[in-house]
Design a protein around this nucleic acid. Structure first.
Lengths: 180, 180
DNA sequence: GACCGCATGTAACCGGTTACATGATTGC
DNA sequence: GCAATCATGTAACCGGTTACATGCGGTC
């Protein structure tokens, strides 16, 4: 249900094509929402067929930019005000850390170091995006809220990974070592 | 793919039934992984059929506790060491905040207040779980890593929500107000 | 003229959700 | 005796992924 809302949210800011959106899902938005191009294209067509989007001409190389319609805006606002957010999540980094007692400490730390590095790189990217915002535009003011949430979560994850590496170093490797 | 690993991870600590796991997905683990009972039960059966789990007797009320097998442990360890974590995520709170410029500030703040409250409640629950750990047990030491990650992320989200409420209060409600 | 990135799609499949069904045990 | 909770499942459906296919435009 929310993929449609994600598409409407992005297109509400300014017209975008399926390709544009797929790229944003790949880099910028991976921590908020993501979808493969093969899911995006048909969904955009459906939204246009239902009158929530309108295709504005055709660009070079068969490019199809969509813009939001009045009905699309109404639908978005209704979703925001009449339904509440789904909070269920899946996080493989945290899931895996629950199982780290099954590995020798060196392997556990190698995993945590990899995660730390990954989150640091994302954090850098996110901060660059924040700098590029033009806060005179209302949509960018809202984007600041979203990016700030992402940044704070990534900061939490990098500091956690550092702490976790140190913590694993203090684990006893005793006679009950399950990895023997 | 990872649902199976989530099930193996939980059962590796101590024998659990489908019902146990479903409840954990509902409350404790909602921020890490979740699955409905209707997905859990058949998956456990499949894991048992493949020899990664073994059903140990039958408890009261048709209860079926599973324990992990040597092959299950091997599979878990291999997953941890030879594959890398999938970092794609979906977060509806953040997705929605990107669209908040479409609402009048009061509605945007109402949303943010609701989110703040939700995350505060989860944070309390998570901290209680952390206190209940017995760090002499290796599995609990790994659970500490997972819970600590969850706690830090929830702290990040609550402080973000506070900040966001204040930030929205400073937004100009000018002539270009898109909600008129 | 060859190659890379842009750009859109279809079909088969798998993972996850919703709706529905059933029975056992405990507490009021 | 009744309701609530424990406990497990099946079937239909929908959302998301993987594999595959196609053509255009710019650059070396």
């Amino acid at each position: 249900m929310s993929l449609r809302m994600a598409l409407l949210t992005l297109i509400s800011v300014e017209p975008r094509s399926g390709y544009d959106i797929s790229r944003e899902f790949d880099d910028v938005l991976k921590f908020v929402w993501h979808a493969k191009p093969t899911q995006v294209y048909p969904e955009l067509k459906r939204l246009a067929a239902e009158g929530l989007l309108r295709q504005r001409g055709e660009g070079p190389r068969g490019r199809r930019p969509y813009q939001i319609t009045e009905e699309g805006l109404r639908t978005l606002r209704e979703w925001l005000t009449t339904t509440s957010a789904d909070h269920s999540q899946r996080n493989e980094t945290i899931l895996r850390s629950f199982a780290l007692w099954l590995l020798p400490p060196e392997d556990a730390q190698a995993f945590l170091r990899e995660e730390m590095e990954y989150h640091r790189v994302r954090l850098r990217g996110m901060r660059a995006l924040k700098k590029a915002l033009d806060l005179r535009r209302p949509a960018d003011r809202a984007a600041l809220l979203g990016l700030e949430a992402g940044i704070r979560r990534l900061e939490a994850m990098t500091s956690w990974a550092e702490w976790a590496i140190d913590t694993v170093a203090t684990w006893p490797h005793d006679a009950d070592d399950p990895t023997r």
